[in-house]
Design a binder for these strands. Structure first.
Lengths: 168, 168
DNA sequence: AGTAACTTTCAAAAAGTTTTGAAAATTCGA
DNA sequence: TCGAATTTTCAAAACTTTTTGAAAGTTACT
C-alpha cells in the first residue's frame, strides 16, 4: 500500500473511530492528520488536506488544544501559527481518559451519592431495588475512578509490563 | 428525595450518560428503567413510563437484547412478553466491554496491521512518522485487547481487589 | 496610525441520528 | 382456520449535531 492511500485510510478510520468515543469526526481526523505528520502544520494546510472549512478547522483545533492533544507552535520568522500533536500514544490515551473522567464519571458519581439517599421503607421492593442498583453502580464507579487515577499517573511500562502478573 | 423523583433523575441521567458511550438515549433509558424495576415489564409499561412510541420502544428493546443486557421473560398465563434487565452491574460492564471491543477495537487492530505494511523508504520522514504512529497505536491496542479479554472472563473481585495492584 | 495577514465567531444550512405511527407480519387461543 | 392480540418494520418527520462562510476581531509589521 502506498503512503498517500494509507494516510487517507488512517485518517478516515480514526475519524469514524472517534465518533464512537465522544470525539467528533473532524476533531479526530485533524488529530489523525497531525499524528502522522512529521512537521507542525498550519490551519490552511489542514483545511486543504482534509477539505474542510476555515471555521470548522479552527473550532476543532481549539477543542484538541483544550483536550491537551494538540499544541500551538510558533516557528521563528513565521507569521502563521503551527500545530502539532502529542505523538506518545500512551500520553494521548491518558489525556483522553483524564478528560472523559472529568466530564462523565465524576458528575455521575456525584449524582449517585444523592440518589442513594432516597427516602422510604427499605422493605418496599421498589425502594430496595432502586437503592441496590444505585449502590452497585456507585461501588463499581468508585473503583473505576480510583483505577483510572492510578492509570493517569502511571508510566506505560506499568500497563504493558504489569499485565504479566495477571496470568500468574 | 422521593422515590419517583429519584427514579426519574436516574433514568434521565443514565440516558444522557449513555449517549457518551455509544448507546442511544432511549436505549439507555429503557435499560435504566428495567434496572430499577423489581418486576419484569411489558412493552406497554415501558412506553407509558417513558412516553415513547411503540416502534421506538420495540427497536431499542431489541438492541438491548442483542447486547445481552435485557432478556425476554415469558410469564405463565400471560399473552404479552415481559422484559427484565441483568441486575449484576459487573456483568453489565463486562457485556458492554465485550460488545464494544468486538465492534470497535477488533476492526481497528485489523486495519492497523494492514497500514503498518506501507511501502517506501523508512528513511523518508513521512513514512517513518506514519509507521511509528501506527505501530505505537497497535502496540497499545493489542495490550488493551489482552487486558480486556482477561477482564471479560474475570470475577468482580479481580477488578476490585487486583487491578489496582497492577499499576502500583 | 494604517493596513494586510491572520484568527475567531456565529447564524444559517447541511448532514446525521432518532423517533413516530400506521401498516404489515406474526402469534396464539378458540 | 379465523381473528384478535401482539410484535415488527420502515418511510417520513422531528430533532440534534456538525459544518460552512462571511463578517468581525485581533495582531504585528511598516
Amino acid at each position: 500500500m502506498k503512503l498517500t492511500e494509507a494516510r487517507q485510510q488512517f485518517i478516515s478510520s480514526w475519524g469514524a473511530f472517534g465518533t464512537h468515543w465522544g470525539i467528533n469526526r473532524t476533531m479526530a481526523q485533524i488529530h489523525a492528520l497531525l499524528l502522522v505528520s512529521p512537521e507542525p502544520m498550519t490551519q490552511d494546510d489542514i483545511m486543504e488536506e482534509l477539505n474542510i472549512s476555515r471555521g470548522n478547522t479552527n473550532m476543532n483545533i481549539r477543542d484538541l488544544i483544550n483536550w491537551g492533544l494538540v499544541e500551538r507552535v510558533i516557528l521563528p520568522g513565521e507569521r502563521k501559527e503551527f500545530f502539532s500533536a502529542e505523538k506518545d500514544i500512551w500520553k494521548v490515551v491518558k489525556l483522553i481518559v483524564k478528560e472523559r473522567k472529568k466530564r462523565e464519571l465524576d458528575p455521575m458519581l456525584k449524582l449517585l451519592d444523592q440518589l442513594e439517599n432516597v427516602e422510604g421503607d427499605k422493605r418496599d421492593k421498589n425502594i430496595k431495588t432502586f437503592i441496590d442498583t444505585v449502590s452497585g453502580i456507585k461501588r463499581l464507579g468508585k473503583q473505576a475512578d480510583k483505577t483510572l487515577d492510578v492509570m493517569i499517573k502511571a508510566e506505560e511500562n506499568w500497563f504493558v509490563g504489569g499485565l504479566v502478573k495477571l496470568f500468574k
